[in-house]
């Protein structure tokens, strides 16, 4: 992949998610809550996780930010519902290595679903934090559940 076209960064699926924002809204009875902030631009997210019987039941979030951070949070909430904590951690690791690959890793669609559309971000290092915002909040929240 190259930076030839800005659509490689802002893929259609990404723009869709940035508008649809799946999982937007906080949960009523969260098991864990976490907060993330992107210092370079002030983007913020509050993320709720509800877990039970060793499984993430659902994720809800609020906040504001750029298309990349909003789409990323939306994709995350699609992916992690129904996963165990270990599976979540595996997704997280895979997602992070995709973003850090500088265009070499298109991502594992089976594991990451729509989030592979964020692979283009790896060619825009200043934007990696935008894509990671929801995921680092998830990582933080996972430390506080006993799934």
């Amino acid at each position: 992949m190259s930076r030839q076209d800005l659509r490689n960064l802002y893929q259609d699926v990404l723009v869709d998610h940035s508008h649809e924002r799946h999982g937007y809204g906080l949960l009523e009875d969260p098991t864990a809550e976490s907060h993330g902030i992107n210092r370079s631009c002030g983007d913020e997210i509050t993320l709720h996780i509800r877990a039970g019987d060793g499984v993430i039941e659902s994720v809800g979030w609020t906040g504001h930010g750029c298309a990349i951070s909003q789409a990323s949070a939306s994709m995350l909430s699609d992916i992690v519902a129904g996963l165990t904590r270990d599976e979540c951690t595996r997704c997280l690791d895979r997602f992070r290595s995709m973003l850090q690959s500088r265009g070499k890793d298109d991502g594992d669609e089976e594991l990451l679903g729509d989030a592979v559309a964020l692979s283009g971000v790896s060619l825009y290092p200043p934007r990696i934090n935008c894509a990671m915002l929801a995921w680092t909040a998830l990582e933080d929240g996972l430390t506080r559940i006993d799934a």
Binding site: L6, G65, C66, C130
Partner: peptide, 13 residues
Amino acid sequence: GVHSHDVGQFLDE
């Protein structure tokens, strides 16, 4: 409807 970060990215292109 567009965040300033995305505005800046579009213009940088």
